[in-house]
């Protein structure tokens, strides 16, 4: 296999578009969520270990690091969920023209911000 082949598209000179940025965001949020599955694992295991272990878990999640991570995961979850619905729509062959792709893209971004904000608001109150 040739080793020094150029990478296409040339990411350094390629103009970012809504479509490509949302595509990589889907992958990044999915990766973050996969890593974030450590939280429910820690949560469930800590319950079996007794109140002290559970307290440790809660103290970490309520600390500045834990809360920032939770906020990031909340956005990732909502974005990945809404953009995933967009992908499932595409899988049925719908909404594939360029104007429709941009419209659903902005809709997903708007929806993600609103739903995440509502989620964080209800969580902190």
């Amino acid at each position: 296999m040739a080793k020094q082949r150029p990478l296409s598209p040339h990411l350094q000179v390629y103009k970012p578009q809504l479509t490509s940025m949302m595509s990589i965001m889907h992958r990044i949020t999915g990766f973050a969520l996969a890593v974030g599955l450590i939280v429910p694992t820690w949560w469930l295991v800590s319950v079996t270990q007794g109140p002290d272990a559970f307290m440790q878990f809660q103290e970490f999640m309520r600390g500045p690091v834990g809360l920032s991570l939770l906020a990031g995961w909340a956005f990732s979850l909502i974005y990945h969920l809404l953009n995933g619905l967009r992908h499932l729509m595409w899988d049925t062959g719908r909404g594939l023209t360029l104007p429709e792709v941009y419209r659903s893209g902005w809709l997903v971004i708007l929806g993600s911000v609103i739903v995440t904000a509502a989620l964080l608001y209800s969580a902190y109150n």
């Binding site: 996969a34 469930l44 295991v45």
Partner: peptide, 16 residues
């Protein structure tokens, strides 16, 4: 890793 974490979760649910 994911398989092990999933088993840990399910086992915890059973224990609880």
């Amino acid at each position: 890793t994911f398989f092990a974490m999933a088993v840990a979760c399910l086992f915890s649910l059973l224990v609880i």
